[in-house]
């Protein structure tokens, strides 16, 4: 009984996200073999997604957010999936910047899993301890030498309010990179398929197609 209730809840949440996407204003562009979609939600928040069209299965390469500050004015892009490939701004304007020798945390999904790669981590695999905190809906990475610590959530799981399970979590280590993998549950896969169906409806502009109204 409980399980049924939970499933209906998850279903409701996923439809809410889908509805949200449907109601958003969308602009779509195909450029460099990538499908780029820009969403503007009703509250003024912006989201940008990129998909690789060559792989055929339209795997999410990048998702970033532009949220409105409390006082108005736009903040910088926040990356949910993928990484900022723009060159770092000169230090003078920022004043403070994480050194490039620090571990870099990036989410790179595969078709069946959520995956996070933490580069620049030179310690052996025994150092790491990755756990699920079901109550706070987060995953925690600890190091026994107290050099690295990260607590993060999975926004995709939060959107449908699905519970996190330790069993679905696994880690691997190679080439100074720690890879944390979490298996996507069925609900997420269903939702992603539905979203893809929806996105097919938006007409994509080709690169070089510029709306031009000569007057």
């Amino acid at each position: 009984m409980n399980r049924v209730l939970l499933l209906t809840f998850v279903y409701k949440m996923s439809t809410a996200w889908l509805e949200n996407l449907k109601s958003a204003q969308k602009t779509c562009l195909v450029q460099d073999d990538r499908k780029k979609i820009h969403f503007t939600f009703q509250d003024g928040t912006e989201m940008a997604e990129e998909y690789d069209i060559n792989t055929g299965d339209l795997l999410g390469e990048l998702r970033k957010w532009h949220k409105k500050g409390t006082l108005g004015g736009a903040t910088k892009w926040e990356y949910e999936v993928g990484e900022d490939l723009m060159l770092a701004k000169p230090l003078l304007t920022e004043g403070l910047m994480e050194s490039s020798s620090n571990p870099i945390f990036v989410r790179k999904d595969t078709k069946q899993t959520f995956q996070w790669r933490i580069r620049n981590l030179p310690y052996p695999i025994e150092t790491y301890q990755v756990t699920v905190d079901a109550e706070n809906r987060t995953i925690t990475i600890r190091t026994s030498n107290k050099k690295y610590y990260k607590r993060f959530s999975i926004p995709d799981m939060d959107r449908i309010q699905a519970a996190l399970k330790q069993d679905d979590l696994s880690i691997a280590y190679a080439n100074n990179t720690l890879i944390v993998t979490y298996k996507k549950p069925k609900e997420v896969l269903d939702l992603e398929k539905a979203v893809q169906e929806e996105l097919k409806k938006t007409k994509a502009m080709k690169d070089g197609d510029v709306e031009c109204n000569p007057s």
């Binding site: 230090l91 004043g95 910047m97 190091t143 690295y148 610590y149």
Partner: peptide, 9 residues
């Protein structure tokens, strides 16, 4: 729990 190096402007 952790340590980070920052570049300063």
């Amino acid at each position: 729990e952790m340590e980070t190096v920052y570049d300063l402007g």
